[in-house]
Amino acid sequence: MKRKHLFFGFIGILFLSLLVLIGKRINQKSMEEAHFETIPHFLFYDEDGKEVNQLDFENDYTKVLVYFNSTCSLCEEEFHAISKSIAKFKDTQFIFISTEKFEDIIDFASIHQLHDRKNVVFLQDRDFKFSTYFKYDVVPSTFVYNADGQILKAYKGFTPVKEIILTVNGDDRR
């Protein structure tokens, strides 16, 4: 009888401890999610190897942030579509981020006529931190933030450019 009590006592303690741990984790998670409502603190590198963070993009533009890889066919399609429709984006700052070498990033950007354009920035995630900052690790991933840095929409995977334009141009907080 005593052993039985011992067993169920152990199970009861285990059950309660797990419940407490889960409760704490859910609480922490909801705080983290609130953090992702705005553009997170990040650190990437520009073409000259200079550190760039979210404060460098404090301006009156809507921000379209695209995580990509030049070898990914869907990224190629998305780049092609953005490049073709770039005039349709009103007051927009584009930030393209990749983990690749800068030579490959620039080659890819040049092919799609996006290199050296006004309001288009290419950054390198050399420390592979993108998924830590943005919680997405899929290429392509697209994030649209309003001028105040609040998230308007996050897209995982290939996104038709029409949808991005609708989100950007529907931003009335500029």
Partner: peptide
């Protein structure tokens, strides 16, 4: 119910905790 059931409940909670983490 008592022995396998209590294990299953604890195991589910453990997996929930891991996936939350």
């Amino acid at each position: 119910v008592l022995y396998y059931g209590s294990y299953l409940v604890c195991w589910m909670l453990f997996v929930v905790f891991i996936s939350l983490s």
